[in-house]
Design a protein around this nucleic acid. Structure first.
Length: 745
DNA sequence: CTTTGCATTATTTTT
DNA sequence: TAATGCAAAG
């Protein structure tokens, strides 16, 4: 069939497989997305399924969108009614329709990690427990873990009744669940759990979806957890008794064990789904032979794997260059210098370059280095737009208007902007809410009967009427307009406008950006109600959130975020023992080490052509200098793939210069040169020069000495290109483009 | 009721 | 280092 012509034999075998369970073991870069999209297209084109009879589950929304686009190119049918999304978004869809059956209202809200923590904190306080001994993050993790093992609070308490600490954790867990229920809210785990529960207990619903989804496809199967496995299992069951699931994954890329993902889901697939077919894709189309050999050399040290060896037709490739650096600032500088070199010598666009690291904190030093060096970059997951206060506040308004039981959102905004509703007023409301077992907003209706001052009572009722007005408006306005309405009528806008600081202004800008994101959402999706928007925003992953409009910038991200992506040139930074592999508290068990190794394997296999690895001898952590030794993983890369380097001459010269120079900064350790880039003058003349193609007559430029000017004319070619610039008050100057300290503005 | 300042503590990875 | 929390003062 022509559709499958472009696939290799193995890929075709997988894509055209008939009914029954099948596992496609797809190594990195072996074309698994291709197989998935072609299989879906194949099922539709051959009449085996209609678009709405297909359910495809991806790891991120971005992956889902890309898959939709690719499928749309392959087939003539409309894909609108095809379900493609993450486990979480698919479950939300199921829940909106059916959650009434298990005692929730269909207008539930989704609580993110941050909301969870607030809730847990409230629980600890309410139970009069010592907040020092009960660590919120740890407890959040424990609750999530128990939920995913389907252990109820009661069960947990009875299992640990003799253990004081754990019993109390159980009490926190119980209260946490109760509070969620009162708020008609679900956390991330609940989205999957409640959907599963409905499918298990409601036969009608189960039959409906089992019937509807004739074919189920799951990507990144190695990162599914117990609940996700059960969802796949139950949805995949067909009337004829067979399981109809098509899963794609790679045990060597299982990197979410800490989140409950179970590598055994993929390792035991054939046991779990009797009669399963297994197809292995081992031919790699992404990386050079050298990079593949390095990756194979590393991953073969793992035991938890079925074993496979990636190969490629392409021969050779560039050696992997490994750099030993003094500290993280040098590391950043060297990365920047090498990037510029790649661009200059190999014509590599910045957008084809990625810098990967193990932990998010490492991005800071890199960011500073790139900024100083004038290399455009974007950070995935770094500064979280949707976690900024102003965005969370507006979101809280939206959530409260949507679901008046949402106590977390209520707390967030009752008094923002100031409405003279203080802690004691809220306390009284809260007590009343607890007594009568209603939400705080609902408790506000009784404000006049409570022991409040007249003023407080009035303030509360004004607040209530404002929210009620918005509740009416939400149904008659498009989301983006409605959000603006909220922004204005709640007084949030005037609050921001009255703040004249830089911070205040950037908040206004952020809100504007948020509004345009809402507008964009409204135009892009057909299901674009407030409800859809709220779910959409809650379920965005870091990769989904990154600004795609910024072109030609390098990308900085964690290795986790890089899963599924590829770049021409990749830098893996911080290859130090204790950082990568990360060691938490002195212990690193074998399972953890294997996961770290898989993570390193994922990092290596992101690179298509060129791979750089760096490590620093001294890294600043918690404001202290720490001595580091190079990662044990580096020894696992076969020698013949590596070229060990000192920083290249460009950087080395610079370091030398600074060493004997006067730039010794740092308050606590004056003897360590830790502010490498503070030497402004040294940097300035090595800044990237303006490329002639980015500057045109009419452009405004900033010159270091002469200030702002306008480009009049560009003369000459190549290196000798010169530019005529008219400066304000300084006359017209002729400058050699290559050396001129000018920046476009 | 709000703001300020000092002290403490946290860093894996994220839907 | 930077973010958060708590106490004290305005």
């Amino acid at each position: 069939m022509y559709l499958l012509d472009k696939l290799n034999e193995k890929q075709r075998e997988a894509a055209s497989y008939g009914k029954g369970p099948i596992l496609v073991v797809a190594g990195a870069g072996t074309g698994k997305t291709r197989v998935l999209t072609h299989r879906i297209a194949y099922l539709i084109e051959t009449g085996k399924a209609m678009p709405w009879e297909i359910l495809a589950i991806t790891f991120t929304n971005k992956a889902a969108n890309e898959m939709k686009e690719r499928i749309a190119e392959l087939i003539d049918y409309s894909i609108d009614r095809m379900w493609i999304g993450t486990f979480h978004s698919v479950c939300v869809r199921i829940l909106r329709k059916n959650i009434g059956r298990i005692g929730y209202d269909s207008n539930f809200v989704i609580y993110d990690t941050n909301d969870q923590k607030i809730l847990i904190k409230d629980c600890i306080k309410e139970l009069n427990l010592d907040s020092k001994k009960y660590n919120i993050n740890a407890i959040r993790g424990m609750i999530s873990g128990e939920k995913n093992r389907r252990i109820s609070p009661d069960k947990y308490i009875s299992e640990h009744f003799g253990e004081f600490y754990k019993r109390n954790v159980g009490e926190i867990y119980a209260l946490y669940e109760k509070k969620l229920k009162i708020a008609n809210a679900l956390d991330f785990d609940d989205l999957l759990l409640k959907a599963l529960k409905i499918l298990e207990t409601e036969e009608e619903v189960r039959k409906l979806y089992q019937d509807r989804f004739k074919y189920i496809l799951v990507d990144e199967y190695q990162d599914t957890n117990l609940i996700q496995y059960m969802l796949v299992k139950i949805l995949g069951q067909k009337p004829d008794g067979g399981d109809n699931v098509f899963v794609v994954g790679d045990e060597d890329q299982s990197i979410y064990g800490w989140r409950g993902a179970n590598i055994n889901n993929i390792l035991n697939f054939e046991k779990d789904f009797p009669g399963a077919k297994v197809v292995k894709l081992e031919k790699n189309y992404r990386s050079t032979n050298i990079i593949l050999n390095a990756a194979n050399g590393v991953i073969k040290n793992n035991c938890q794997r079925k074993g496979k060896n990636l190969y490629t037709d392409s021969k050779g490739g560039n050696l992997i260059r490994i750099f030993e650096m003094d500290n993280e600032k040098d590391e950043a500088f060297t990365v920047a210098a090498l990037m510029r070199k790649e661009r200059r010598e190999n014509n590599i666009e910045y957008s084809d370059i990625a810098v990967l690291y193990r932990t998010n904190v490492q991005s800071r030093a890199l960011e500073e280095g790139l900024m100083r060096e004038g290399i455009p970059y974007k950070i995935v997951g770094g500064l979280k737009f949707y976690e900024r206060k102003e965005i969370k506040d507006i979101m809280a308004y939206l959530m409260l208007v949507y679901n008046q039981k949402d106590n977390i959102s209520f707390n967030r905004i009752v008094n923002v902007p100031r409405r003279k509703i203080g802690l004691k007023t809220i306390g009284i409301i809260e007590d009343h809410a607890n007594e009568t077992e209603v939400s705080k907003f609902e408790a506000c209706y009784d404000a006049s009967e409570l022991n409040l001052t007249a003023a407080a009572s009035k303030n509360i009722s004004d607040f209530v009427s404002m929210i009620e007005m918005l509740m009416i408006k939400k149904d008659v306005m498009p989301v983006s307009e409605f959000i603006r309405e909220v922004y204005e009528t709640t007084g949030y806008e005037s609050m921001l406008f009255s703040d004249d600081t830089v911070e205040g202004r950037s908040r206004v800008e952020n809100i504007e950006e948020f509004l345009s994101a809402a507008k964009d959402f409204e135009e892009r999706y057909e299901e674009n109600s407030l409800e859809d928007f709220l779910a959409h925003v809650s379920l965005l992953s870091d990769v989904d959130r990154t600004d795609e409009t910024q072109k030609n910038t390098v990308t900085l991200m964690t290795v986790h975020s890089a899963k599924g992506l590829e770049f021409d040139t990749v830098f893996i930074t911080g290859l130090e023992d204790g950082i990568f592999p990360i060691i938490h508290q002195d212990d690193l068990n074998d399972d953890d080490l294997e996961e770290e190794r898989r993570l390193f394997y994922v990092a290596i296999t992101r690179a298509k052509r060129m791979l750089y690895i760096t490590y620093a001898n001294d890294r600043m952590r918690f404001g202290n200098h720490e001595m580091k030794i190079k990662s044990r993983f580096l020894k696992e890369i076969p020698d013949e793939c590596i070229e060990e380097n000192q920083p290249d001459t460009f950087a080395a010269k610079k370091i030398e210069k600074l060493e004997k120079g006067k730039h010794f900064y740092g308050k606590r350790h004056p003897f360590v040169k830790n502010s490498f880039f503070k030497g402004e003058d040294d940097i300035k003349h090595e800044r990237p020069r303006l490329k002639s193609d980015v500057i045109r007559p009419g452009d405004k430029v900033m010159h270091k000495a002469w200030g702002i000017g306008t480009v009049v004319q560009i003369k000459g070619e190549g290196n000798s290109k010169s530019v005529l610039i008219a400066f304000e008050n300084k006359g017209v100057k002729n400058l050699i483009l290559e050396y001129a300290p000018i920046e476009k503005i």
